[in-house]
């Protein structure tokens, strides 16, 4: 299976679920910004969740299918099309060699993921195939994809992927009637947050504003972080914070009172006070926020955040069983 990039689009990189084991050495986790969509795309082709896939931002990219493909795409940044006809997302797609696929902008979100049976083949570095652009390593030669790059899949396919391929193999585009429903994870404009350690460093009015007023996603966001515009947070405790650990989902308050939401490629430590931590389940919505989107923050407890996390993992486990059943039993 192979594709050749025709147009790379805006920042297209190879990612997986990242390298969480190296944060102690100040290596950001990296990996897919929207880990849920990435996992759904992999599941749809029978891959383990951590297989390498391609992360696209918005529409505009296109690629040529050099050899027959078993792929799936997920996410909300683009709709994959062939000759102007939409391909369905969240289900396995058999695409014969010679097809050109173009990504049409989807105004619902910003990022899409393309999985291939076996996973895209790139060198594993520090236990991950994710691109870390600032460090210049990982993914496809440590850089974003460019026109003419040739990507092929890993040789070892899972038994489930082989079975899906057998079911769908054809001389034309073919896919099953069902798709994975991601309605449990619908994009909302409410982002649930847990108060972070420096929450009470801010005055009451600021905290009330944080939890009631609308905020707007700034266009300067990238894989490291997303600035969020809105009421400025003012401090009642003006101590200097000694640099300490931060993580994806941490909302820092900069010197002038603005919010910055840290994402996949963010530094591992920081010295800005942390006002809140986005619930892990809502990082999907954050990764998909388009510039100028209006959002609201809602406070939940750390126990609730953990509960939501475990609930989602349980649903995803059930999904694995469902997909396996559809293709292994028939």
């Amino acid at each position: 299976m192979a594709i050749r990039i025709i147009r790379a689009g805006v920042l297209t990189t190879v990612q997986d679920l990242g390298r969480p084991m190296f944060r102690g050495q100040a290596v950001p986790t990296s990996g897919a910004m929207d880990q849920l969509s990435a996992r759904l795309a992999n599941k749809a082709v029978g891959n383990p969740d951590g297989s390498a896939l391609i992360e696209f931002n918005y529409g505009g990219a296109s690629f040529f299918v050099e050899c027959d493909l078993l792929i799936a795409y997920s996410g909300y940044g683009a709709i994959f099309t062939v000759n102007g006809v939409d391909l369905p997302c969240n289900r396995p797609l058999f695409i014969p060699a010679g097809t050109s696929i173009t990504l049409k902008e989807n105004l619902q979100g910003s990022r899409s993921y393309l999985a291939v049976a076996g996973g895209w083949k790139v060198t594993e570095i520090m236990g991950s195939r994710s691109t870390y652009l600032s460090g210049g390593f990982g993914g496809f030669e440590g850089r974003a994809l460019e026109a003419n790059d040739l990507l092929i899949n890993e040789a070892g396919m899972s038994p489930l992927s082989k079975s899906i391929l057998e079911h769908l193999k054809s001389s034309e585009i073919n896919f099953p009637k069902w798709s994975i429903s991601d309605s449990r994870f619908v994009l909302k404009n409410e982002v649930r947050v847990v108060p972070a350690q420096e929450f009470l460093w801010f005055d009451a009015i600021s905290i009330i504003s944080l939890l009631t007023k609308p905020f707007v996603v700034n266009a300067q966001g990238n894989r490291m972080g997303i600035p969020i515009d809105g009421p400025l947070m003012s401090r009642r405790k003006t101590d200097e914070l000694l640099s300490t650990a931060v993580t994806m989902g941490t909302i820092q308050v900069t010197g002038n009172g603005n919010l910055v939401l840290l994402m996949a490629d963010a530094q591992t430590t920081g010295g800005y006070p942390r006002i809140a931590q986005v619930a892990s389940v809502d990082l999907v919505a954050c990764a998909q926020m388009r510039p100028n989107k209006e959002i609201f923050f809602k406070e939940i407890s750390s126990d609730e955040a953990e509960e939501l996390y475990l609930e989602r993992e349980m649903h995803l486990k059930q999904l694995d069983a469902t997909i396996a059943y559809k293709f292994m039993i028939e």
Partner: peptide, 14 residues
């Protein structure tokens, strides 16, 4: 256990 991040006054455990 995954990893730790050491800082000036804190140890974070992932």
């Amino acid at each position: 256990f995954r990893t730790t991040v050491v800082a000036y006054t804190t140890l974070s455990v992932f």
